[in-house]
């Protein structure tokens, strides 16, 4: 059986051969590991990897499988599942004006038709008592403001549409 997980930008490919109840051989790259596993509860799996015991904590989340081993956390995206929802994930975030978490719009700093420079603050949002200014991801013009002050907003929601300035790429760098 083949598994492919994505953690941040790194893809982990895992070839799994089951060789008995609750045991398998995992090949990652050129490394082969003997694994014995026992489920303790829904979120707790006891692993013995090449004779070393450890507890793994796991949960399925909308972004992937959350795994914690010895205090370290991973979020593993199932690559096959990820392909179908590649569009509109948070990886597109830096290119649009979206809050990083559920928040409330406290102030709009621009109006439709305004020219903005990359890095310029366009909207202030507040979450968990903290104000954050969301910046324009590139030079451009504000074509549409999709929210009003006081609105509750969520990640991936585009608060302000900005049309990039033409020829941004071809402009001489020096």
């Amino acid at each position: 059986m083949e598994y492919q997980f994505k953690n941040n930008e790194e893809t982990l490919s895992l070839a799994v051969e089951t060789d008995g109840p609750e045991r398998f051989c995992a090949t990652i790259g050129d490394r082969r590991r003997e694994v014995v596993y026992r489920r303790i509860s829904d979120h707790k799996i006891h692993l013995t990897v090449d004779g070393r015991q450890m507890m793994a904590f796991v949960a399925d989340t909308p972004e992937g499988k959350a795994v914690i081993i010895q205090g370290r956390a991973w979020l593993l995206e199932d690559v096959a599942a990820a392909r179908t929802r590649r569009r509109g994930t948070r990886r597109d975030g830096p290119k649009q004006v979206s809050p990083p978490m559920p928040a409330v719009v406290t102030k709009l700093l621009v109006a439709e038709g305004d020219r903005v420079e990359k890095g310029q603050g366009v909207v202030v949002v507040s979450a968990m008592k903290m104000d954050t200014t969301l910046a324009a991801p590139f030079d451009g013009m504000v074509t549409r403001i999709n929210v009003a002050e006081g609105d509750k907003v969520t990640p991936q929601q585009v608060l302000v549409d900005i049309a990039p300035t033409e020829n941004e790429e071809s402009a001489p760098a020096a």
Partner: peptide
């Protein structure tokens, strides 16, 4: 690697 093994074990168990 261990995290991936745990994820696979979670899928199997």
């Amino acid at each position: 690697d261990l995290a991936a093994i745990a994820a696979a074990a979670d899928a199997l168990a």
